[in-house]
Nucleic acid binder design. Structure first.
Lengths: 335, 335
DNA sequence: CTGAAAGCGCTTACAG
DNA sequence: CTGAAAGCGCTTACAG
């Protein structure tokens, strides 16, 4: 620890000199290979590392190996609660594997996604986590990067890329079926207009299975504001739906605000169920009944795809679990 | 674009060859220096870059320059809404300066902050953004790193480091004074126990200026759960305070949940004002009256400190602006 | 204005 | 088990 606070940094050569070995041996020790090292030599090296306070220069390592110990993560907007939680979990899990997370928001106005992907690649990331929908050309770009890649979330057309996702249709069905069990017949949907998003289908399926006809269909953005706008439309609809499924908790929260301001009570006038299972869902009022995504499992699966790229990774799909709270009309206790 | 999808990457040497110049000249062109290049030569190079689809290898660049085009950001937990918004804004602003953001959560259990700081340094980041409280030894570590550094947020003891922050005391005073104007006399405080956090002092000052005595003082964590726990205590206090200042919107939201469940009405039974100005503050009920941190200005100032490190940067302090909504008892219109 | 060359700090095939 | 050396792809002082 003597020189921990030195200004010019200690390099592998210093360590080699101190330990009386070659720099190659220092590498072998630090990387556990590729060559074996005698136990005593190894201890001398480790000692030198400790004494000199040595830390490998990651840039040199990345240049030499052609790969930095970083994962690139592309999300649409790290502020939306679900993605914030996803980033956090991936950071935890990635760190356990010695990888830092380079987070890129695709909603940046200055650069398009292709440009951001190329930038990540030029930084020699060792893996790419994509949690946004990709155009066909962006997808081709990603494939050309020849990087371990995993798509998180069900973005349909990315079949060529390994994916970890959640069964949106099943989660939605569970939520909508729960609303149906409450006896609601006129059930609206608020969510994405994207074809790949199976929530709309899950809603439709649940309704037709119960021989109910589809209620009001509202497409909106996955933001508080988008939810608010949808809430306004719901409040003003006539007849007003008796229940609604929202494609994200964030949308639901925005919706609640609009409904409340217009004197529409939840769940008395309109019941709500949503999707994601963010922490805040348990703190708004009424607390949200929501299909919870198993974040830890998703993150673990994604990281493991990157760490062990297999020829045919395919799709790893999880099923969300419905968490019942008050927004649907139930009266459970607190978590 | 011919070779955009090649597998082995094109290097500076390829560009030089194609353009019929030396690799040095390619560098001069791409970096706008340090040497001037004839206009025609420059165009030949740029053309080669375009044709070959060349992208510089960031690792090589970082090794050579001793500095990667990345900023390291240390936050406690990127999920808490205010920090999520901070990360997002810093990402935007950093990107405009060609810097990516390497986000590190200090709440990771696997590594202590010192270790995380050393890891960031070993990655050759070109600047360090710290938005957590540092111990004295961590602070010494940071200084020893000799990296452009900026502290975001008022973490008192970091006087040696340039800081961009918000006047916590002033923001809190504004909020508490507003509660006082409503006529509330018994005003509680929910927030941090940390000495450097001036919100408690702001609350105390506002009260004593109005010749009111201090109300209930509750220290809790900056989470929904922490706010919930505080809410429970408030609800059960007797006499129950007539108003409360919460140190963050997130705390306030947790508090609202606890109060609501216990039948304590906000603002009728207890008025609430808080701090931060996160987006969600406008969507919960009642909507939060809160001291809004000027995020864009904070981020801009922080980035500019890193980009133009001056010998004596000192403290750049912003004053939050009170946003009045319903939680304090006012009845404003929607934003 | 341009180029040849050293150097950044690693990794790893190759030789012993 | 250990070492000398080439190479990763940049930047930049130095020379012209």
């Amino acid at each position: 620890m003597i020189d921990e606070h030195r200004s010019r940094s200690v390099t592998r050569a210093d360590v080699a000199r101190y330990a009386g070995v070659s720099t190659a041996v220092v590498s072998y020790v630090l990387n556990n290979g590729p060559k074996p090292v005698a136990v005593l030599t190894k201890e001398r090296v480790l000692d030198a590392v400790r004494v000199l306070g040595y830390r490998p220069n990651a840039a040199a390592r990345a240049l030499s190996k052609g790969s930095a110990d970083m994962f690139g993560l592309v999300v649409h907007d790290n502020r939306s609660p679900f993605f914030a939680e996803l980033c956090h979990t991936l950071d935890q899990r990635g760190t356990q594997a010695g990888r830092s997370l380079l987070i890129v928001n695709s909603d940046r106005t200055q650069a398009d996604t292709a440009e951001q992907l190329r930038d990540l690649a030029s930084r020699q990331i060792s893996g790419l986590i994509i949690s946004v929908a990709l155009t066909a050309s962006e997808q081709a770009l990603v494939e050309s990067l020849r990087l371990p890649t995993v798509v998180i979330g069900p973005f349909g057309e990315t079949d060529a890329l390994p994916a970890v996702s959640v069964d949106l249709a099943a989660g939605t069905r569970a939520a909508v079926e729960h609303l149906i069990e409450h006896g609601y017949q006129d059930i609206a949907f608020v969510g994405s207009a994207a074809r790949y998003d199976a929530r709309e289908r899950g809603w439709a399926d649940a309704l037709s299975a119960a021989q109910l006809k589809r209620g009001l269909l509202i497409h909106t953005s996955f933001t508080y504001e988008g939810g608010y706008a949808a809430g306004v439309r719901l409040a003003e609809a006539s007849p007003r739906p008796r229940a609604v499924f929202a494609a994200s908790d964030q949308i639901a929260i925005g919706m609640l605000a609009a409904l409340r301001e217009r004197g529409v009570r939840v769940p008395e006038d309109i019941a709500v169920a949503s999707f994601d299972g963010i922490t805040a869902a348990d703190y708004v009022w009424p607390r949200l009944t929501t299909a919870v995504q198993p974040l830890d499992q998703i993150a673990d699966a994604a990281i493991s795809v990157l760490l062990n790229p297999t020829p045919d990774p395919g799709l790893r799909e999880f099923v969300p679990e419905l968490r019942v709270r008050e927004s649907c009309g139930c009266t459970p206790g607190r978590d």
